[in-house]
Design a binder for these strands. Sequence first.
DNA 1: AGGAGGTCGGGGAACGTTCCCCGAGTCTGA
DNA 2: TCAGACTCGGGGAACGTTCCCCGACCTCCT
Lengths: 331, 331
Amino acid sequence: MRRPTLHAVAARAGVSKSSVSRVINGEPTVAPEIRQIVMAAVTELGYVPNGAARNLVTQKTNTIAIIVSDPPEGLASDDPMFAMVVRAASRALEAAGKQVSLVLAGSDESRRRVEQYLAAGHVDGAMLVSMDGADPLPAVLARTGLPIVSHGRLATPGLMPWVDNDNLGGATKAVQHLLDQGRQRIATISGPLDMTAAQDRLTAYRETLKDTGRRSIVALGDFTRISGADAMRQLLADDPQLDAVFAANDLMAIGALRTLREAGRRVPEDVAVIGFDDIEAALYTAPALTTVRSPMGEQAAQTTRLLLDLIAHGSADSVTLPTEIVVRESA
Amino acid sequence: MRRPTLHAVAARAGVSKSSVSRVINGEPTVAPEIRQIVMAAVTELGYVPNGAARNLVTQKTNTIAIIVSDPPEGLASDDPMFAMVVRAASRALEAAGKQVSLVLAGSDESRRRVEQYLAAGHVDGAMLVSMDGADPLPAVLARTGLPIVSHGRLATPGLMPWVDNDNLGGATKAVQHLLDQGRQRIATISGPLDMTAAQDRLTAYRETLKDTGRRSIVALGDFTRISGADAMRQLLADDPQLDAVFAANDLMAIGALRTLREAGRRVPEDVAVIGFDDIEAALYTAPALTTVRSPMGEQAAQTTRLLLDLIAHGSADSVTLPTEIVVRESA
DNA sequence: AGGAGGTCGGGGAACGTTCCCCGAGTCTGA
DNA sequence: TCAGACTCGGGGAACGTTCCCCGACCTCCT
């Protein structure tokens, strides 16, 4: 009932286990006839090399960890980012012949386990996804010496290479678009400020407005729909005269849209709304959401490439990807 | 530069490697003072047991594979199901001390690799997610003899235990709700018919309507928003008089809502729309979507429990979870 | 024809654990 | 106080591979 071993295949084929190993690993220095005999024995016995034994002796695992920060609240668990990023990264990794180990870093307890897990040599490298600035995990993991890259720029610079999209540029374009429409009172719904993406988008909003003499109107969200809805209520209370809102992501823009509808404001006539990310749902809101496209699939693919480079060459340079505005109906 | 081994810790602590191993694995039969000495040496050296060596000798990996069918088209890559299911299952698995290996089964090539991967002993068990009926993968994997369960009932019965929600009951409730409102011409947008969930939802629609003498009006979708929008266009062309639509999932209902809006039909006055799943986005449509709640987080957690049971006891019974209707504005 | 060089297969050590088995040490009870 | 039983630590084999090194055979050149 036990799986056949290399030894069994060698015995079956009547050659040494070295020869079998060479055939399995596709080494060129093996006679064609031997190869054939071995292959026959392999298929006959249904032999598959034992992964653990292989990992042990080669000191590599062919496995990459995708480490996703997972807030214990369990909010935003249908986050489209998660699906897009994990899926795109997995695809790229599998295309490169790597296996994927998915790690949710939630509680402190689980964070400790992540460190152990990496130190135990289970993976050849890791990709960090949506880490916030307060999280000590990146620094801890960087110290393991393993090749690690970050999907999204980290608050602490220099820890590891990263791939991010041009949040500053994108947010600037968004606010500029509202200004170009002649909007006078432009508010923003910010993301959680311990994340660099949220910081950058807020900074760009402030800088762009400052040049026009307008004042900033800011409400805080956490990148979820419900927080966007709440923040919008807050903004309407703070300044009933506002005529435009820049939400730091589409999910919050969708929440804002609902609040505006409930408040009887027309979009875009009374209030223009612009989001960020261009998730698929942005096409299906009423009215359809104007937003800034961040190339999420591309970002995940590039992050993967960066990691593979880092593993192969020992170094890799961070990348910033361009963003573009997508004008639909809401602004 | 190399990581310390068990041997190094033993030397440092002045005990045998057996003692160190016992301490590491928390065996009770070890003197407290020895334990203390060993622990000191462990922290001092920063020792972490090598995973591959451990896996090799114990013949288990503490790892579970989540195998997700991944259509090559790359459509629906922001599928909220993917995020919810993978996240909930990962959480449950990590809570049980298991590591998660995420496997996307896309091309034929990658399917072959999945089989190899499982046969190589990289995992102790696997969970299949969103397999369609035409997929040979479940049968192939079942033959490996590894403990495997399915998230969602499979088209081929008896292959492995599964956890599903009550699609028949839920869809019946949905259609009945439309009937109760006095709707006369009730159409449906079906999911891909090679998936059991789509089959069941369509069957329930047909059965429920049949009793009332009404005729079925069916358009085919594939569980994506765009397909829902297309199918709705089709339905309006087929029967301009229709006054209700049951979409087999919320994503397609969202697509249908957009088409209805474009066609100038009011929801729910002219056409009632009801979805299925109760994803978070259903709360944010205009009008808010009436739908059938399927407990996705619960389903993922139960599937995990089923798998752990199967691994521990060698057997486990399939589970069907109840669904309930959630009435909002659209129907 | 003989030797040198190159090609290919075989034996065995090593990877870092766990676990079995044995032996030594300790404690208890008669 | 001594024997027996039990507790706890140590040595070593085993897990299934890879890879190094050596040896044998073949070929080609001189």
